[in-house]
Simulated assay, not measured.
Amino acid sequence: MIKCVAIDDEPIALSIIEEYCKRYGDVELQCFTSPVSGMECVRATRPDIVFLDIEMNSHNGIELAAELPQGTCLIFTTAFSQYALDGFNVDAVDFLHKPIFYPRFERAMEKAGKFIRPAWQDDDPGSLALKAEHKTVIVGLKDIILIEAMDNYVKVYRKDKPMLMSQITMKEMESVLPSDRFVRVHRSYIVSTAAIERFSNRTIYLRNHPRPIPVGRKYIQAFNNLSNIFQPK
């Protein structure tokens, strides 16, 4: 869960950020029209991301930025583009110019994710953040049974949970999965070793999955190397 605080003296601007955070998914957001109350919350809760307006009636966001706790990811939101350079001078990750449209908001969140992901994923090293249906979904590695390629998407089959479709390639997926828990056995399949019920040189049968999975010719040796040390339960 990504924890965020938004500070803006315009309620409409806050409602837009709130709507976009819900659409993005896996975001916990607190909104404040009062800069004083908002900064008190930031200091008390130390959120991952702060959305901060620059020109508010009683405060200047550039000055408030200097008071943020170390390590806070800052995204400025403002209707005044002339502040962009000032924003980056205080180490803002991004600068959203109002009116903010969702694709631009999503890019800002992805940029912020590169800074905060190590911190919030370390809380649960057994999970993976995937984009699914325009939302970010945290998937437990222990729940994954099988990953199947489908063009530039993958289908993620999970134990006792709905299948997810995520826009990521098999190569990218293989690179982020722990190699001691997952093995690619075919150009179209990655399997969880914990889900393997039985296997032969060319076929794998998984628990909680009805279809046998073929072992591709290119991957036979790699799978055989694994099967030498794998002991089905």
Rank of each mutant, 00 (worst) to 15 (best):
K171C: 07
D26W: 11
K171G: 14
L177C: 05
K218T: 05
M163W: 01
V176M: 11
I220E: 09
A6T: 03
L64S: 04
A66V: 08
I12V: 14
Q167V: 11
E174Y: 09
K161Q: 15
I17H: 00
T78G: 04
C21V: 10
A65K: 05
F95S: 06
P232E: 08
N89L: 07
P232K: 05
V137G: 04
R43P: 00
S227R: 08
L74S: 03
I213L: 04
G38E: 10
D48K: 01
L64D: 01
T72K: 04
H59M: 15
E172S: 14
G216L: 02
K218A: 05
I144A: 03
I49A: 02
F80I: 11
G140Y: 13
C41S: 14
I17P: 04
I229N: 09
F199V: 08
I100H: 07
Y153L: 11
C73Y: 07
N89R: 15
A13D: 07
P214D: 06
H186T: 02
N57A: 15
L177N: 08
C41F: 04
Y157T: 10
C4Y: 02
F105Y: 05
N224L: 12
D180L: 03
H97A: 11
N57W: 00
P178G: 13
A195N: 12
V215P: 04
